[in-house]
Amino acid sequence: MNLRIKLIPYERLKREDAKKLVKDLKEGTIILVDAKLDPKEEADLIEETMKVVSTKFSGIELSSMELSELKETTNFERFKNMVIERIMGKKRGLTIIGPAKIIRKIEKNPEELLLYM
């Protein structure tokens, strides 16, 4: 099976409907976003996913991490990140979303994300 990975800038994801994202996931695409989704976006994504779960599409695996979660980050760096994120309007980090049939599990350690396929 061909693996399809889509990189989406957070700014575009924010404009898009969660339904469109779920459509891609349903078609077997793994999505990478260059930021951490905010909690409401995560909840919307789960809600939209649940609406289309079927015998062929069992749902998604989702995980994200933000820069400020890194252990080495100093208080000054955290403050700097906070200011930058306020200006940019996004949490700097990474989000991985994939169909559960392809990504069996995502293990999150404080400093890395491990995908089991």
Binding site: D38, P39, K40, E42, A43, E61, L62, S64, K108
Partner: peptide
């Protein structure tokens, strides 16, 4: 540490 727990806590905080 799993996404469901993180999403629940994040939404309650928000």
């Amino acid at each position: 540490i799993n996404q469901v727990n993180i999403t629940i806590l994040g939404n309650l905080d928000a």
